[in-house]
Simulated scan of single mutants.
Amino acid sequence: MTPGGLPAITVLIDKNDHPDWTAAAHSAHGPALGRLAIDPSPANGTPAALAHDLLYALGKRLPAGGETYGTWADSQRPAWDAVAAWILTHHIGHLIICRTDRLTTARQRQLLALRERCGIHLTLLWHRPVTPTLRTLLEETPHHIIDTLPQARIALSQTGYPLAGTGRAEQQRPPEPAHRQDDGQWITPQTPPAGMVIDRPARARCQGAPELVSTRSGAPPPRGHDPTPADVLAARLATVAHPLHATALAIHAVTGADISRLALTRGIDINETATAVKIHDSTAHHKCQVYPLPAWTRPLINAAGSHGQLKDRAPDNPLLPLITVQNGEQLTLTATGIRYRLSTAR
């Protein structure tokens, strides 16, 4: 570890571009073990292409939107914000990048910035002898160079340790959900039961969500017959690339809140244990309702919390900013991508 708490960058010099080095890196890929290995897409010139590669390696899928993915994914900063939030949520401690020598200097520096932002161990595979470009890239960054394959395999097996203190409580890696066949049918959420109404005293500030007894079940609260098992819905939401969109759709599935009410949700409207969410009736806050959150929503809630911290959003600010832009077009596009019917009015 460096004095600042970050692991030194590991550079693997595969000077002869031998396939065994790349195979070793691919074998090290194990998100459940905290390791992520990617082979950047060749000849992809879009500004956020490397961020897209990382999102795909994390199991996320960008919504199809004609010639573009949508405004957030086509912009570098929002795309990298999403990457950082998911890395923290999934506890990725070691990021391994193949073909680093073929990346532009700008993309190489994006990786260094991600390392500092998330506190991860970064390993770069350089498939040629050391070059002046590499020396310039790392001249002010602690690093060590490995040029033998046996040592490289040892380095690739390390997990690394993300910085502590980012995100909500109960951020341990969730267990893998039980496998359930997804027939690909559209999911139409059922009308949920009413939440617990919270009266606001006159002239009093609307408080955040109270603590509830932990909802340990993986199923949503009872709401009548629902033909779609909770694990199918959870699995689809786990592929959503934007953490705020994933959280918004999860809250919608549990509460039935339309886009305008989702936009009113503040950070403090999800309690510290992520067991309850408050849905505001309107900006008047006269009859706000609290709903229990099932266990399957928590990884998504944690991702939204990490995203908010990365963006320095205050807890009493909106948790889901920009959700209503262009009548919720981006969120609707995301919902369509996972075949989920998002109601626009309640």
Rank of each mutant, 00 (worst) to 15 (best):
Pro47Thr: 14
Thr10Asn: 09
Glu176Pro: 11
Trp72Tyr: 08
Leu6Arg: 00
Ile38Ala: 03
Val290Lys: 03
Leu50Gln: 02
Pro292Arg: 05
Thr334Leu: 07
Thr265Arg: 02
Gly66Ile: 13
Asp14Thr: 05
His280Met: 08
Ala284Trp: 13
Met1Glu: 06
Pro19Lys: 08
Ile154Val: 14
Arg205Gln: 15
Leu134Thr: 07
Pro315Arg: 12
Leu88Asp: 10
Thr159Glu: 11
Thr255Val: 01
Leu6Gln: 01
Tyr340Trp: 11
Leu156Ala: 06
Trp80Glu: 02
Leu320Ala: 09
Arg223Ser: 10
Ile338Ser: 00
Ile268Gly: 04
Ala37Lys: 03
Ala202Trp: 15
Leu331Asp: 00
Ala178Met: 11
His286Asn: 12
Trp186Gly: 04
Thr2His: 05
Leu50Cys: 05
His280Lys: 00
Trp186Arg: 12
Ser343Pro: 06
Asn271Cys: 04
Gln172Ile: 08
Leu62Trp: 06
Ala257Asn: 05
Trp296Thr: 09
Ala276Trp: 01
Ala79Asp: 02
Glu176Val: 14
Pro243Ile: 08
Arg266Pro: 03
Pro192Asn: 03
Asp14Asn: 15
Thr332His: 14
Ala84Gly: 06
Ala57Gln: 13
Pro227Gln: 04
Asp14Lys: 08
Ala8Ile: 00
Pro220Thr: 10
Leu331Thr: 05
Cys118Glu: 04
Asp20Met: 09
Leu111Asn: 03
Thr188Leu: 11
Gly5Ala: 00
Thr10Phe: 02
Ala234Pro: 05
Ala230Gln: 01
Thr332Met: 13
Leu319Pro: 00
Pro63His: 09
Leu58Glu: 00
Ala152Trp: 02
Arg298Leu: 11
Ala253Thr: 09
Asp74Pro: 06
Val11Ala: 11
Ser282Gln: 04
Pro221Glu: 10
Tyr340Glu: 02
Arg200Gln: 14
Gln207His: 12
Cys98Asp: 12
Asp312Ile: 11
Val240His: 00
Asp53Ala: 10
Gly70Met: 07
Arg266Thr: 11
Leu264Lys: 00
Tyr340Gly: 01
Ala32Asp: 15
Arg102Lys: 14
Gly30Arg: 15
Ser157Leu: 12
Pro47Tyr: 02
His94Glu: 06
Arg339Met: 06
Leu333Ala: 14
Ala106Asp: 09
Arg203Lys: 13
Ala43Cys: 11
Thr239Cys: 13
Cys118Phe: 01
Arg341Pro: 01
Thr136Trp: 10
Cys288Leu: 02
Gln110Leu: 13
Pro189Tyr: 04
Asn327Thr: 10
Pro78Ala: 10
Ala194Arg: 13
Leu62Ala: 04
His179Phe: 14
Leu50Val: 07
Pro31Met: 04
Pro142Ile: 04
Gly119Val: 01
Thr336Trp: 11
Ala23Lys: 14
Pro19Asn: 04
Pro229Val: 06
Thr100Ile: 05
Ile92Glu: 01
Leu6Pro: 01
His52Gln: 09
Lys278Val: 10
Gln289Asn: 07
Ala276Lys: 00
Trp80Pro: 02
